[in-house]
Design a protein around this nucleic acid. Sequence first.
DNA 1: ATAAAGGCCGTACATAAGTACGGAGTCAAT
DNA 2: ATTGACTCCGTACTTATGTACGGCCTTTAT
Lengths: 125, 125
Amino acid sequence: MKTIGKLAKELDISVETIRFYERKGLIVQPLKPENGYRLYNNILANQLKFILKAKALGFTLHEIASLMSLSGNCADVESMGLQKLRLIREKIADLQRLEGVIKEMTDSCKANQDPNSCPIINSLN
Amino acid sequence: MKTIGKLAKELDISVETIRFYERKGLIVQPLKPENGYRLYNNILANQLKFILKAKALGFTLHEIASLMSLSGNCADVESMGLQKLRLIREKIADLQRLEGVIKEMTDSCKANQDPNSCPIINSLN
DNA sequence: ATAAAGGCCGTACATAAGTACGGAGTCAAT
DNA sequence: ATTGACTCCGTACTTATGTACGGCCTTTAT
C-alpha cells in the first residue's frame, strides 16, 4: 500500500494528476484509514499504469474511461481501436498534404532572389 | 468598406471571431465613424484572408502574428516554414508509429477466440 | 413610425488535461 | 518537541481558439 506521493513518484506523474483522474472518475478514490490519507494497492496502481499507456497511444481520458468500462469485451475494444486507427490515418493524410504544401513554399523561397519579396507571404495574400 | 457582419459572412467566420482576432492583436481595430461601427477596407479584409489561409496550413494564431510581423523578409519566413515542416514530419512519424502499434493490437483481436479476454486490454495491463 | 436586424462592449463559458495555491491537519526524523 | 515533508480539500488558473450572453444603441426595411 502506497501513499499518493510515493505512487506519483513511481509513475512519474504529479499527485495532482492522480487526484484529477480520480475526480474525472477514471479511478475510484481508495479507501482511506483514520488519518484520511489515500492508500493505493496494486490493482489501483495497475489501473493508473493502464491509463498512462493508453494515453501514450493517443487515447483521450474520455476514451480511456470507456475502454476501462468495456471490461475486456474484445469486440468492443477492437472497435474502439479501429476507430482510433481511422482517425490516425486521416490525421496522417492531412499532415502529408500540409507537408507537401509547405515544402513547395519553402522551396520557392530557396529559389527566390529578392529577400524582400517572399513567395510564401505572396501566396498567402 | 464593409461592416463586420458582411465581412464575416463573406469569409465564412463569425463576427465574434473577427473581434477575437482583433483582441489578440492579429488585426488592428478599424477606424470607426460616428456611429461606432467597425468598417473594413480591402487591406484589412486581405489580412483576415491571410490569417485564415495560414490557419488552414496549421499555423497557430501566435505563429501567424509573427508571420505577419516579418513583413515579407523571405529568409525569416522561410525559416518559420522549415520549422513548421520539421514539426509536421515529427508528428507524421509519431502517428505512423502509433498506427503500427494499434494495427497490431486490433489484428490480434481479430485472431482472438475468446470474446471475454481482449489482447488489447491484456497488453495494456 | 415601428420592428427587425445588425452592431457595440465586457464578461462568462466551452474543451482537454492538467497545474498552482492556500490553509489546515498529520507523519517522520532529530 | 519541534521542524520539515507529506496529505487533505476546494478553488482558481493555464493554453488555444473561439462561442455565447445580456443590455443597450443604430440602421434599415416596411
